[in-house]
């Protein structure tokens, strides 16, 4: 009976994952491996193709779900928004990193909302102290977003805009400092993470485990969080045994990734703080400001 309960929990979290996250790993891998026929993504590999890509995406209908605002947009990650317009004539190249960064921010804010909905679907989460729910999201959400980037990436680049665009790693590296430093650590992490070959149902449980971390600073009532996490950890361990019977120590390897993840988030937040100081034109999305203020 206990195993049956754990399997039911796995199914529940997988369903919530499918409900709230528009671009699954299965879809992303199909796009990356060219199995989508005529719907190959548009490739952005230099400034010219970036400009074309912006126009391309603005002409296309972004696939939307009920909970997503219908905005045509360029985005990073699982879909999203392009708040800024194409620059007019001069300064286009100077502004491009900032404009791109703004679109990343808008998409990230939308993704935070998706992760929040997913968190609320974890059994017991909404019964936790509301301040603790906030703390778990504040500390967990960037970790979750970085894990969710992995399926969209390969060693050569990343899918953006719901998988409609592929942006090359070399292009991201060619942006001016410090923008060029933002994605490279995520590529390095993702390429290694992808060798674990998790599928979407494994990912759903792993994301819930990350969210339910009882060691986040400032938690008021740790015990119920740890109890919830323990149950999800059991479900994850069973899931990996059943889904990857030949992958030895996968559970342990996956848990080790959580340590790497914290370092990546710390470095990411420091980069954003640096950007805030050095880029006069940069404004940070209020939701991201809330999350990153006094984070690490």
């Amino acid at each position: 009976p206990e195993a049956a309960d754990l399997r039911a929990l796995s199914r529940h979290l997988y369903e919530a994952y499918l409900k709230y996250f528009p671009l699954t790993k299965a879809k992303a891998r199909a796009i990356l491996s060219g199995k989508t026929g005529d719907n190959a993504p548009f490739v952005i590999h230099d400034m010219k193709s970036l400009m074309e890509g912006e126009q391309f995406i603005n002409c296309k209908q972004i696939p939307t779900q009920e909970h997503q605002p219908q905005t045509s947009a360029l985005s990073v990650g699982h879909g999203g928004l392009m708040g800024a317009h194409l620059g007019s004539e001069c300064n286009i190249l100077d502004a491009v990193e900032l404009r791109f960064f703004h679109s990343c921010q808008s998409r990230s804010a939308e993704a935070v909302r998706e992760v929040t909905e997913f968190a609320k679907s974890i059994p017991g989460f909404i019964n936790l102290d509301l301040n603790d729910q906030v703390t778990l999201l504040k500390y967990g959400v960037i970790e979750v977003l970085i894990i969710m980037m992995a399926p969209l990436m390969n060693k050569d680049g990343t899918l953006i805009a719901y998988g409609q665009i592929f942006m090359t790693r070399e292009f991201l590296k060619s942006l001016r400092k410090p923008f060029c430093q933002m994605m490279e650590p995520k590529f390095e992490f993702s390429v290694k993470f992808n060798t674990l070959e998790l599928d979407d149902s494994d990912m759903a449980l792993f994301l819930a485990v990350i969210i339910l971390s009882g060691d986040r600073p400032g938690l008021l009532n740790v015990k119920p969080i740890e109890q919830l996490q323990e149950t999800v950890l059991h479900a994850l361990e069973l899931q990996l045994k059943l889904n990857h019977p030949d992958s030895l120590q996968l559970f342990a390897k996956l848990l080790q990734k959580m340590t790497d993840l914290r370092q990546i988030v710390t470095d990411h937040v420091h980069l954003i703080q640096l950007l805030k100081k050095t880029e006069v034109d940069m404004c940070l999305h209020p939701l991201l400001q809330e999350i990153m203020k006094d984070l690490y």
Binding site: R113, T116, I126, L130, V134, L137, K138, P286, K293
Partner: peptide, 20 residues
């Protein structure tokens, strides 16, 4: 609460679209 008002709002509102 004031420091994290958008997160609070996201947590307390159900699935209706939230003005971010």
């Amino acid at each position: 609460k004031e420091k994290h008002k958008i997160l609070h709002r996201l947590l307390q509102n159900s699935t209706s679209p939230v003005e971010l």
